[in-house]
């Protein structure tokens, strides 16, 4: 039987300018799932439903064996949540926050927290208002990670960081995630970050789940072909996501890339000149365009 860190079934929710219909999303234990979507795609809504902060109009949410939002209190003891718009109390020090978290989570690991302080180059006695955005994000991550939660939910943790800080956070996170066996849901509109950290990737757009696959499958199944158009070239090709023509040339994107696809193309009147692997960003964009 598959052990899920979380399992969302047929989730629907409606807001005046946003709707999510029948979303199904789950994460196996020990996996890192990257949730990619543009702003307003529904990433934060999904995460809020997952945290029990928003009650879906329909559907079932199961997190670490708890039904949400009814059992959110119990579930949250094992979920660590951090988001880009999360702030700590500006007039209090990081040490105060660590003590506060420790008072709630008795298994808060002070040794690990100390280690993270060093890794993130943070000072425990510094007040929050004196920290940069990058330091604040690191402080939030420290508080969450030192609890050693079974499920880690990170909502756009790298948004708004300068490139150096982002690289530092991602590098540390990658390091930390390798260290620990924990399930992670990581949302971002930045595909590079997702690519570095995730085992599985989900694309979300306008409240719909466009795709959910492991990273390797995405990279292997998606490809871009530069072709010369033969006189008998057909209008469409089976397995092509998009075909962009320009004079005698065409660019074909597929999500069913295999050695046979070149043959399929040729039979359809497309002579392959070049075949390219696609970056996750390109795959994401192609995916979104196909579904809009």
């Amino acid at each position: 039987m598959q052990q899920y860190a979380f399992d969302m079934r047929n989730i629907s929710i409606r807001y005046p300018h946003f709707a999510m219909e029948n979303l199904n999303l789950s994460l196996a234990k020990g996996q890192v799932l990257g949730l990619v979507g543009v702003n307003g795609a529904g990433k934060s809504t999904t995460i809020r439903i997952l945290m029990g902060l928003v009650k879906a109009d329909a559907g079932q949410v199961d997190v670490l064996g708890y039904q949400l939002p009814a059992q959110q209190v119990q579930a949250k003891y094992d979920i660590g949540f951090a988001s880009d718009d999360m702030r700590l109390y500006k007039n209090q020090t990081l040490q105060w926050h660590m003590d506060f978290i420790h008072s709630i989570f008795p298994n808060f690991d002070h040794g690990y927290a100390k280690d993270l302080l060093q890794r993130f180059e943070l000072i425990a006695d510094q007040k929050m208002k004196g920290l940069s955005h990058g330091q604040r994000v690191k402080a939030c991550l420290l508080l969450v990670l030192a609890r050693r939660p079974k499920l880690l939910v990170l909502d756009e943790p790298t948004t708004g960081l300068d490139p150096v800080a982002r690289d530092e956070v991602i590098t540390e996170l990658a390091d930390i995630l390798r260290d620990d066996e924990r399930s992670v849901l990581f949302s971002s509109h930045n595909t590079h970050d997702i690519e570095k950290l995730s085992d599985q990737i989900a694309f979300l757009d306008r409240g719909k789940l466009l795709a959910l696959q492991d990273k390797e499958s995405f990279v292997q199944s998606w490809a871009r072909f530069r072709c010369q158009l033969l006189p008998q070239a057909q209008e469409s090709v089976l397995g092509a996501v998009s075909i962009r023509r320009s004079g005698q040339l065409a660019e074909v994107i597929t999500d069913q890339c295999s050695s046979d696809f070149a043959v399929v193309l040729h039979q359809a009147g497309f002579k392959v000149i070049e075949q390219h692997r696609m970056s996750l960003e390109e795959i994401f964009v192609a995916n979104v365009k196909r579904n809009r």
């Binding site: 029990g52 959110q72 209190v73 003891y77 999360m86 702030r87 709630i104």
Partner: peptide, 17 residues
């Protein structure tokens, strides 16, 4: 306003608590 609400709600409490 100071966006500490998200931090609070990540703790084991319901909105009602």
């Amino acid at each position: 306003k100071d966006q500490t609400l998200a931090f609070m709600m990540s703790l084991p409490v319901t909105a009602q608590d």
